[in-house]
Design a binder for these strands. Structure first.
Lengths: 185, 185
DNA sequence: GGACACATGTAAGAGGTTACATGATTCG
DNA sequence: CGAATCATGTAACCTCTTACATGTGTCC
């Protein structure tokens, strides 16, 4: 139940149309809550029906013409209540860790290459976050937004470190070569 | 598409019934891929239909009586192929980071308490993982399984550090007191 | 008017969550 | 036999993903 709250947050930061929201979910907000345009349009409809947001006047046909939304008082209240509402962290569900475990059973053939690919992706993401930090928080800025960005940076840092360690272990474990053998049954 | 592969991995490690699998998904395997018994039974049915696993003989009625499954050659091959199959990491979708961002817009009332609660949960989880490490990997053990466990440990370590930092920032930012437990009406 | 970007929307299906339903076994 | 536990299964619902569909405005 986080998508509606992500949208409320985004709309409070700046009233927007569906497409503008989609763009923002590809950038800053999307760094910790991703969503596609189909999800966003559906959820905008629901939020409007629930009376948490409203479309600004100047409507044309439903398809094709731009529709701007803004948050109503009820929406702001709902969001404030949600911020404090207890909600346990979800159990981890990570395909990469699972694949490493599976490799322990069926062999690590091809896995090292995939780990290298992920390492590269996470390094890029980390560099991007750090560039954003240097640009937007040179000396302060909104402390809460900075905190969130630090979360992203720390998370990517974890992945980079873990993947480097994994590849080191692989090299050590198989002599000189990463994922050569697996010498099946 | 990871659940079937999680089940194949679990069944290769040890042929099991649905309930036994459910138990194992509440422990070791569940530490990086959680699943409920309904998901597991549904997926076992699909995997059997697909010819990747089979139920061992000695069947009774479909409800109530135990059914053991084992992985067939096709299942092992599918799992080995999946280990090497490229699959990009999913974008982050974390409700807690989102709530901190929302707090920047509607106020941080009640948030510190929730962060403290999460900090406690993550500390417990970390302690549990470290106990498992001390018990199962005193000096080695399966390097891949150890690597996965290290992933869990490092991830929890990240959360603990980030939450501690967040709470420190909160205390600094609001004078002496975070949000004074919001003492309700 | 054709191409293209802008903008919103529909549909089908997979995966996950929650609640409930049903049969078998064991133990007092 | 009643209760608890083991064990499998159904159903409803919600979210997310993927692919497709439709309309508008602009520029050549």
């Amino acid at each position: 139940m986080s998508l509606p709250h992500a949208i409320l947050t985004a709309l409070l930061e700046k009233p927007s149309s569906g497409l503008e929201l989609t763009r923002r979910f590809d950038k800053s907000i999307g760094y910790f809550w991703s969503a596609t345009h189909q999800q966003i349009y559906r959820e905008l409809g629901r939020l409007e029906t629930s009376g948490l947001i409203r479309a600004l006047p100047a409507q044309g046909p439903s398809r094709g013409s731009k529709k701007e939304y803004e948050v109503l008082a009820a929406g702001r209240e709902e969001l404030a209540a949600w911020v404090a509402r207890p909600e346990d962290p979800r159990p981890i569900r990570d395909p990469l860790l699972l694949r490493v475990r599976a490799a322990g059973v069926v062999g690590r053939e091809g896995l090292a290459q995939e780990l290298r690919r992920h390492l590269d992706l996470h390094r890029r993401q980390l560099a991007q976050y750090e560039a954003i930090e240097a640009r937007d928080f040179p000396e302060g800025g909104d402390p809460l937004q900075h905190l969130v960005l630090r979360g992203g940076i720390d998370l990517e840092t974890f992945w980079v470190a873990w993947l480097e360690r994994a590849l080191r272990d692989f090299d050590a474990g198989t002599g000189t070569d990463a994922d050569a053998d697996t010498g099946s049954s």
